[in-house]
């Protein structure tokens, strides 16, 4: 079982990040046939708002889309290090226990390249993430998982993976 620290789970920079993401209202998962579309709508609105705010702050760092049911999500995220852009595929499923438990974000291309990952490329979250999520059910959604889970993970892992030569910069053709 994961070990958590009970206090100081929110620092100032997380607070600032979070202030740009609207909170969700509907406690419903994919099993709740009637309420799930309402929750899914809130997820979309919250994500659209977050991406808009990121763009406005010149801090655009991911794109996401989902299947029709809103249960499978995919897209890409990127991180700038030494003026170079490193981009990765992202994918995750909405678990049956959502939103009580957060989605497990995965970067399959990095599977096996870092110890800070579980099987299938699922990122290993900080001790702070799960308590913070649990304290904010059902107000946190996918955008919060991105901002508080994947964002800080990339900021720590990508520089370390690049510096150790495990990932190399690849010229991407502009599409």
């Amino acid at each position: 079982m994961t070990r958590f620290k009970p206090s100081n789970i929110m620092d100032e920079s997380s607070k600032k990040t979070l202030s740009s993401i609207p909170l969700l209202k509907t406690k419903a998962g994919p099993r709740d046939k009637d309420l799930w579309p309402k929750r899914l709508k809130e997820e979309y609105v919250s994500l659209i708002e977050y991406v808009k705010n990121n763009k406005a702050a010149d801090n655009d760092w991911f794109r996401l889309e989902s299947n029709k049911e809103g249960t499978k999500w995919f897209g890409s995220c990127w991180y700038f290090y030494n003026q170079l852009k490193y981009e990765f595929q992202i994918e995750f499923d909405i678990p049956i226990t959502f939103p009580t438990t957060s989605p497990e974000l995965a970067l399959p291309e990095l599977d096996g390249k870092t110890a800070k990952m579980y099987r299938g490329g699922k990122i290993c979250l900080s001790d702070h993430f799960k308590p913070l999520w649990a304290r904010n059910v059902p107000k946190f959604g996918i955008a919060h998982a991105m901002a508080l889970g994947l964002g800080p993970w990339l900021a720590v892992e990508i520089p370390s993976l690049v510096d150790s030569g495990i990932i190399k910069y690849q010229e991407k053709s502009e599409s």
Partner: peptide, 16 residues
């Protein structure tokens, strides 16, 4: 929620 400083999502008129 004492942790989070932001507002709630607005009801969207748009379809899913």
């Amino acid at each position: 929620v004492e942790d989070v400083p932001s507002g709630e999502v607005d009801e969207s008129e748009q379809s899913l």
